[in-house]
């Protein structure tokens, strides 16, 4: 029962918490906990999607008309940006798993940069709308549309806003992880934290994969 890992010769004891027997148990527990947390995040967003489906069910013409004020090309750009960031995130995790710290650090920073690009695009989208008077809910003062604008735009801002909040939180955590990675904290024995952050980031991407067609491509 040596405490060094078979191939990489890294001492496990450094990372083992007092209440766990070994790293395998600790890592498996960490990942299981994260998947459970992701499950609840999914159900959290499901409420927003339910509101969307109900509103679209009640006001199909409003959705058809209002969504034309959303620029689908920017939405598609953001989709590509997030999908690429998912790739770099997955590569970062792989870097940690294979003791390739350079790859880990580079891909983490790439993910962070792409996340910022996403937010910048969102910023332009939002400010453009504010200029037109398209504000959330009953503050709407924009162009006339079929039906009730507050329903569509209220949901648009809440949905993308909540998603954006999760992106911001993700960026914060990613920066912290990148700084830790630069200090060489992560390796093939101790990388579950990076994996878990990766799982969170992929979830953020997954939500956007559904938001994009539902908000921008209503036909």
């Amino acid at each position: 029962m040596s405490s060094t890992s078979a191939n990489s010769g890294i001492d496990e004891k450094k990372y083992l918490a007092h209440h766990f027997q070994n790293m395998a148990q600790q890592n498996a527990s960490g990942k299981l906990g994260m998947w459970l947390f992701l499950g609840q995040e999914l159900l959290f967003f499901s409420g927003l999607f339910m509101a969307y489906f109900a509103a679209r069910y009640f006001y199909p013409e409003t959705f058809l008309d209002a969504h034309t004020y959303l620029d689908w090309k920017l939405g598609a750009l953001n989709t590509v940006v997030l999908l690429t960031s998912s790739l770099t995130m997955a590569l970062a995790v792989r870097g940690a798993q294979t003791n390739n710290n350079a790859s880990l650090v580079m891909n983490l920073w790439l993910t962070i940069i792409l996340a910022f690009v996403f937010l910048v695009v969102k910023y332009f989208e939002y400010t453009h709308k504010f200029d037109l008077g398209i504000l959330p809910g009953s503050f709407y003062a924009g162009p006339e549309i079929v039906g009730q604008p507050n329903v569509f735009f209220g949901l648009y801002f809440v949905l993308t806003g909540m998603h954006g909040l999760h992106v911001v939180i993700g960026i914060g955590v990613l920066i912290w992880v990148a700084l830790q990675a630069q200090k060489g904290v992560y390796n093939s024995v101790n990388h579950v934290f990076v994996e878990n952050v990766g799982l969170y980031w992929h979830l953020v991407d997954l939500i956007w994969i559904f938001l994009f067609p539902l908000l921008y491509l209503v036909k």
Partner: peptide
């Protein structure tokens, strides 16, 4: 979403229980 979950989120190579959690959710 499925290919992101299966490959990027590593479900194909992990404990099957994580897939159970995702599917039940």
């Amino acid at each position: 979403a499925t290919i992101v979950a299966v490959f990027f989120m590593h479900l194909i190579a992990e404990d099957k229980f994580y897939s159970v959690i995702l599917v039940s959710t």
